[in-house]
């Protein structure tokens, strides 16, 4: 389960944090994104995919959507979840 999306500390984007932890196999995620023709930068310890919005995917499962629009971030999460088989977002407060 991912906690509800919330603005990051500098209010520049929305982050999603898995609880309990949900590590992501980045090599596998990169291949899946590439197969879906999603542009992706592989920095080994993280991926940066342009859905849009652009999203940073960490090994620990933390996601950062670079948009200040909550609806865009939620749409991005839904697409990424489908592509990578991620757990759902929690309904309650983050």
């Amino acid at each position: 389960m991912y906690r509800k999306l919330r603005l990051c500390s500098n209010n520049g984007g929305f982050e999603a944090i898995p609880d309990p932890p949900c590590p992501i196999d980045l090599a596998r995620a990169r291949d899946r994104l590439a197969a879906a023709e999603v542009p992706v930068v592989d920095a080994r310890v993280m991926l940066i995919a342009t859905l849009p919005p652009e999203v940073t995917i960490s090994r620990a499962g933390r996601l950062l959507f670079k948009t200040r629009d909550a609806a865009d971030a939620e749409a991005g999460f839904a697409r990424l979840r489908a592509l990578l088989d991620l757990p759902p977002l929690a309904d309650g407060p983050g």
């Binding site: 990051c8 500390s9 500098n10 209010n11 520049g12 993280m46 940073t56 950062l64």
Partner: peptide, 8 residues
């Protein structure tokens, strides 16, 4: 103003 912190 809002902005994304360096992710690196």
């Amino acid at each position: 103003r809002p902005g994304v912190c360096c992710q690196a």
